[in-house]
């Protein structure tokens, strides 16, 4: 039996903070805020510092692979930062302060306002892509990575906290990055081998020779009789091909 998530505490606000104006984010925003693994600094401050490192890395490398749920959280912050920058620009002191805090490397603040803002100026879609990445890679030998602090596998297995667990991984990238795309374009290529084979099969069965072909059970040995459709009449053809 799966327990429902507890409803989070309703925030103690009387109504929406109407004085603040924000642009709508084009990514799904989860209401349940994910807790992150404890770092050096505890609490919400530590959480933000961890996310800050992820956001800085994303802006620096434009494509990063990390644990799935922290990446999901970081995505929201990255999008918000870009959205604020696109909306207000570098002149707004609050936005500049925000960018200055979120981006640990100061050259990235320049990158945000000079490179990313012009890039994303007219984007109707989200500024980032987020995918599920493999838990581990074949090059690692079908095994998750051992904990670096305890490279001895035996120790890893005995201490539950340091067991060789694999956490779901996520791939977060800024759109318009210079790398090759993660997924190939879905454009069908009529010259690809399967399309060549299929179109030639179509032409064959449409032709007189193909139309009369019948597979006898004995010869093929497969017991399947394939009856291709009779070629349609001329009226369905376009003018030029008649």
């Amino acid at each position: 039996m799966r327990l429902n998530k507890p409803t989070p505490l309703r925030p103690l606000i009387h109504y929406a903070e109407l004085s603040k104006l924000v642009s709508r984010l084009k990514i799904p925003v989860h209401w349940h805020v994910k807790k992150l693994r404890r770092g050096d600094v505890p609490g919400p401050e530590g959480r933000l510092l961890k996310l800050r490192a992820s956001v800085t890395a994303l802006f620096k490398y434009e494509r990063i692979e990390m644990d799935y749920y922290p990446a999901d959280e970081a995505r929201g912050y990255a999008e918000r930062l870009i959205s604020e920058a696109v909306r207000n620009g570098p002149q707004c002191p609050e936005t500049m302060e925000m960018a200055d805090w979120w981006l640990e490397e100061k050259q990235l603040v320049h990158k945000l306002f000079k490179v990313l803002v012009p890039r994303y100026q007219n984007y109707p879609t989200s500024y980032t892509n987020f995918y599920r990445a493999p838990f581990w890679y074949f090059s690692d030998g079908f095994q998750p990575q051992l904990n670096e602090e305890y490279p001895d596998k035996e120790i890893n297995e005995t201490i539950p906290a340091f067991r060789t667990v694999s956490y779901p991984k996520g791939l977060l990238e800024l759109k318009g990055n210079p790398y090759p795309p993660i997924f190939p374009s879905k454009v069908t290529n009529p010259r690809s081998i399967q399309n060549v084979l299929l179109s030639s099969a179509k032409d064959f069965y449409k032709s007189k020779e193909g139309g009369s072909e019948r597979l006898s059970n004995a010869e093929s040995g497969r017991g399947i009789e394939f009856v291709p459709n009779e070629p349609k009449s001329d009226e369905n053809l376009i003018e030029s091909s008649k």
Partner: peptide
């Protein structure tokens, strides 16, 4: 299904 069509044609 499409691959099946190719297989059947290859039988001829």
């Amino acid at each position: 299904y499409a691959y099946g069509i190719l297989e059947k044609r290859a039988m001829l």
